[in-house]
């Protein structure tokens, strides 16, 4: 974080940590998220089996010593696939966040700063995308591009940047009338510098809140697209795809759908709790309750 924010460099950091520690939700959430992220990062070292290795002899093997979470329709290890599934989910989420935060923030700041036709063009585009229900628009884009990981990332980025842009714009609009910004503009500071030094540090907190809440949406959307068969494709393991494949065997071999659902559910709980906690801590409106 840059040091020039209005409230000074040191205090908010330590204050943030104290608040964070006190917030039960944020603590539970961050522990879950840390575990999921660790599993995803360390996947190549912790998975006991090759996730793409087909074995006809172990098809639908129930959970046991060899396969902790059992095996799937192709005899592949479900535990390994759940772990690598975390990697795929997070990769999609991180990619979408990186793209939408970059694009959304820049376009939002431009719209607010320049106003006029720049503002009109950007915000009308935002309005049009907002006119579609999020997931339905993503489904349309996914259908158009054909299934695949890149498709999911592009589709979710397209439906998600407008929210960031709109938030950024409204935050920057209120900042523009602050004295220190007016002073900077008056003294001829270049635009990119104003954006980087004055806008960004002051809008970063709400953006983090928004992003942390968004991770849950993105992961769920990816799972839904994969569940519907238009998301990430085999042989790459995804939780949504595993749940779909497992649903038909729910009565006889529930382990595939069960463990994949659990992984997805727990991850979602983690990100939602963390997001809630961060909002409570960082959002000034509820800060002093």
């Amino acid at each position: 974080m840059a040091g020039e924010s209005a409230s000074g460099p040191e205090r908010p950091q330590s204050e943030f940590i104290i608040r964070f520690r006190r917030n039960r939700n944020a603590m539970i959430g961050s522990i879950i998220v840390a575990l999921v992220v660790a599993a995803a990062l360390l996947a190549p070292w912790i998975v006991p089996y090759d996730v793409e290795k087909v074995n006809m002899l172990t098809v639908w093997e129930p959970p046991g010593e060899d396969f902790w979470f059992g095996a799937d329709a192709l005899g592949r290890d479900v535990f390994s696939r759940v772990i690598v599934g975390a990697r795929v989910s997070l990769l999609v989420a991180v990619s979408v966040l990186a793209i939408t935060l970059t694009v959304g923030t820049i376009l939002g700041m431009c719209a607010a700063y320049f106003g006029g036709w720049v503002d009109t063009v950007i915000m009308r585009t935002v309005d049009i995308i907002f006119a579609f229900p999020e997931l339905i628009f993503a489904i349309l884009i996914a259908a158009m591009l054909g299934p695949g990981k890149l498709t999911v990332i592009i589709a979710l980025s397209i439906v998600w940047w407008p929210g960031i842009a709109r938030l950024t714009r409204s935050l920057v609009l209120s900042l523009k009338s602050e004295l220190f910004v007016e002073a900077a503009i008056a003294s001829g500071t270049p635009v990119h510098r104003i954006m980087r030094r004055h806008f960004l540090p002051n809008i970063i907190a709400p953006l983090i809140v928004r992003a942390s809440i968004g991770v849950g949406f993105i992961i769920m959307a990816e799972a839904t697209l994969s569940f519907l068969g238009i998301g990430v494709q085999e042989p790459e393991p995804t939780w949504g795809g595993m749940i779909r494949d497992g649903l038909s065997q729910l009565r006889t071999d529930p382990h595939l759908a069960l463990y994949a659902s659990l992984a997805l559910g727990i991850t979602m709980v983690g990100f939602n709790l963390l997001g809630d906690g961060l909002r409570d801590i960082l959002d000034p409106r509820v800060r002093d309750r």
Binding site: A257, V269, D276
Partner: peptide, 29 residues
């Protein structure tokens, strides 16, 4: 408060397709 919040977070977190499978299994079958 804590309990209900946890349930609410779970309600948002569990994917609808997984929830559907579970409820069908329980209530219909």
């Amino acid at each position: 408060d804590t309990l209900v919040i946890l349930i609410l977070v779970a309600g948002i977190s569990v994917p609808n397709f997984a929830m559907a499978a579970f409820l069908v299994y329980l209530f219909s079958i």
